[in-house]
């Protein structure tokens, strides 16, 4: 006799409403496990099956996924901060104070945003170092390595533009020092700096420019290129770590 639980589950999962949402059955068999991957927009970035070798912790350390997760955390906490933050030199600092003192969980949201940002820069750098040392940039993955280099630069840009927004002494002088470096480039240097700052020194124009770059332009660029990056991982045959069969590894280590 069927238990009440089973009957209730069946009633729900066989209903027309449920089946309009999910185009696959319970993923406890190979057919449905494949369908989960091919019919779900979030899962479809993954192949239906993956090689065991590419899942080894000591191969990838999960650094790419961790970078993407931190980007997600930054989006969520960043949107929360946007509800309060005003990008005006007269108001920015006081909204930061409000976040710390009066706004419920404001300090926590700001802390998580800042620490995630530092951690994301670190994770992205380490991810690049991992890809380099495992030779995962080699053909056919050259183009995805290039996308990765651009993603690294965008991550640095996102962090740097966000650095100014609290409008305290730390951010003001860090951006002044940072943008001064750019001005030494011959011919274009000082022009590039003026365009970035919206004037000759860091001020209201700079704040609104950095804000627009930080909350919309760079994140959109990141989303676009992260999508391309992940798609290319699949198109180029998954992680490079699965490509060497076990026995060749063993022979190689014997030779040495």
């Amino acid at each position: 006799m069927e238990s009440t639980f089973n009957r209730a589950t069946n009633f729900v999962t066989r209903s027309r409403v449920w089946r309009s949402f999910f185009r696959h059955g319970m993923p406890d068999n190979e057919m449905d496990r494949s369908l989960v991957m091919t019919t779900n927009i979030f899962f479809h970035l993954h192949p239906v099956k993956v090689n065991r070798r590419s899942l080894r912790v000591t191969y990838s350390f999960g650094l790419g996924i961790i970078s993407a997760i931190l980007f997600l955390t930054l989006t969520v906490t960043g949107v929360l901060l946007m509800f309060y933050y005003v990008p005006a030199t007269t108001l920015a600092y006081s909204t930061m104070k409000d976040l710390q003192t009066t706004i419920p969980l404001g300090q926590l949201a700001r802390n998580m945003h800042r620490w995630s940002a530092h951690l994301m820069v670190l994770a992205v750098i380490l991810h690049m170092v991992r890809v380099f040392y495992t030779g995962a940039y080699k053909p056919p993955r050259e183009f995805n390595w290039l996308v990765g280099v651009v993603l690294l630069l965008l991550t640095l840009g996102a962090s740097f533009t966000g650095y100014l927004l609290p409008w305290d002494q730390l951010s003001y002088w860090a951006i002044t020092v940072g943008t001064n470096i750019a001005s030494y480039a011959p011919v274009l240097g000082s022009t590039a700096r003026s365009i970035l700052l919206g004037g000759s020194e860091v001020g209201q124009n700079t704040l609104i420019r950095f804000y627009a770059l930080h909350v919309i332009i760079i994140p959109l660029g990141l989303i676009l290129l992260i999508s391309l990056h992940l798609w290319r991982v699949r198109k180029d045959g998954g992680l490079a770590g699965q490509e060497i069969p076990e026995e060749r590894l063993e022979i190689a280590s014997l030779k040495e």
């Binding site: 931190l70 620490w115 305290d168």
Partner: peptide, 17 residues
């Protein structure tokens, strides 16, 4: 990130001058 955020606050110095 959550636990670290509970332990250590993001820095905020005096207003930009």
């Amino acid at each position: 990130v959550f636990v670290f955020s509970l332990l250590r606050n993001a820095p905020l110095e005096d207003i930009a001058n």
